[in-house]
Design a protein around this nucleic acid. Sequence first.
DNA 1: CCTACCGATCGGTAGG
DNA 2: CCTACCGATCGGTAGG
Lengths: 188, 188
Amino acid sequence: MTNRKLEILTLAQHLFKERGYSATSVRDIAKAAGVEAASLYSHINGKEELLDRTCFTMAERFILGIKEVNDIYFDAALKLKMAVDTHVNILSNNIDASVVFQRDWRHLNEERRAEFIELRNAYEEEFRVIVQNGIDEGLFNEVDVKFAALTILSSLNWIVEWYNTEGSLSASEIAENLYNFILTGLKK
Amino acid sequence: MTNRKLEILTLAQHLFKERGYSATSVRDIAKAAGVEAASLYSHINGKEELLDRTCFTMAERFILGIKEVNDIYFDAALKLKMAVDTHVNILSNNIDASVVFQRDWRHLNEERRAEFIELRNAYEEEFRVIVQNGIDEGLFNEVDVKFAALTILSSLNWIVEWYNTEGSLSASEIAENLYNFILTGLKK
DNA sequence: CCTACCGATCGGTAGG
DNA sequence: CCTACCGATCGGTAGG
């Protein structure tokens, strides 16, 4: 990918985040890039390619992250801690792309959408395995594993709605707070 | 609101949920209603009215729900339990509208969007107050109140992504699971 | 609720 | 990277 193409992709991701994929026109992206709409097509195949790259690049990042965590750590609680930390770090380092990844994957074409859902399921499965390990090791309560994994991921994903790089909490601090919340809850 | 208008609104909410507000055309809605696009305009003022009604009707439901909870209960843990139950019940009884409420409010016009954000903030504030009460009463850990309220709400809101009325868990069971998770976390 | 139609904008192409 | 342009579709209106 050329520098210029990456530049266009980054601009597009920002617009997609702000307005949504469908409500962002090729002309909006062109304007942000300082060129005419037609000129974009010497760099990209079409609008959908920008969505596709965003969704699959993010999916790869998340999957790579969780695989690394699972390779390095053995204790389920530590695995969960590191998985949360990795997830939050990927989100906070790619806020625009993360929102698109979470919200606009529905606009992928049928074939790619199916592939995307498979990748997302594989990622969620890794979280389920960690929770199951924790239960087997006697560390975690005997919760519904599927339910717990979804709840954990949803509490993580929402941060893209309010996270900003100039906020009082760093990504690592947010991850630590979230991990503590997931592990011990509100109760004193 | 006439029956026919409510019918059109319900059909629109379903399409908005599936495709997103921007990617749903007036003709899509008309087709679902079994009429020509022009015929819709004897019932509605425009596409945006359908979004507006959806967002604000849901906002009112949530706010009414939390006010009722705060009026009836005094103990912070019980308040939280009932707030979670009410929230999950509203979500599960209005899945289509809930998704639109959560995702597509961005497409409201500037003025209405500002009003909407205020309502949402007011709702979140009620959750913050409950968490703060719990801390003051010595029931809850001394967490960051704003952070905790956001995390609680995010873990609740995600259920619209996978909830289906024929699933093995009822809305009340889901609410109970979520409450237990929020209160005590994973740790044994 | 319909037919007929509006101007605006859409994603994208041809040709340079 | 541009000008010029394409057919398709958009939200919506006029008039019945």
